[in-house]
């Protein structure tokens, strides 16, 4: 099983150097995790390192396909407030 980086990744490089398995590599349009190399940091760290440093909610999927960092978990912005603000901006 492995973590997966998806399209909301902003290519900020934070995860690449902290991966103990060197499973993360630069790619376009966004960074990728080599599923064969990813160990979920099992045996190395208590928490998966990429998930622990990634600043973008929803950029990494856990082995079950769920957002490893759910909406609001990192920014503290309640998802509902985020939706309202986005709607306000689009309505301008």
């Amino acid at each position: 099983m492995a973590y997966e980086i998806i399209e909301s990744c902003v290519n900020c490089w934070a995860c690449e150097p902290v991966c103990p398995s060197k499973a993360i590599y630069e790619a376009r349009p966004h960074f990728l995790i080599d599923a064969k190399k990813c160990t979920e940091c099992d045996g190395d760290y208590a928490d998966p390192q990429c998930v622990s440093i990634c600043p973008i909610e929803g950029a990494i999927l856990d082995p079950f396909g769920e957002w490893a960092n759910p909406a609001g978990a990192l920014t503290g912005i309640p998802p509902e407030r985020m939706r309202e603000a986005m709607a306000e901006i689009q309505a301008r």
Binding site: V10, N11, C12, W13, A14, E16, P17, I53, P55, I56, L74, T75, G76
Partner: peptide, 16 residues
């Protein structure tokens, strides 16, 4: 220097 090790409430890494 793209990576950051903290989050500040006035910053958004998505913006480019």
């Amino acid at each position: 220097a793209p990576a950051c090790n903290i989050q500040c409430h006035y910053c958004n890494r998505k913006y480019d």
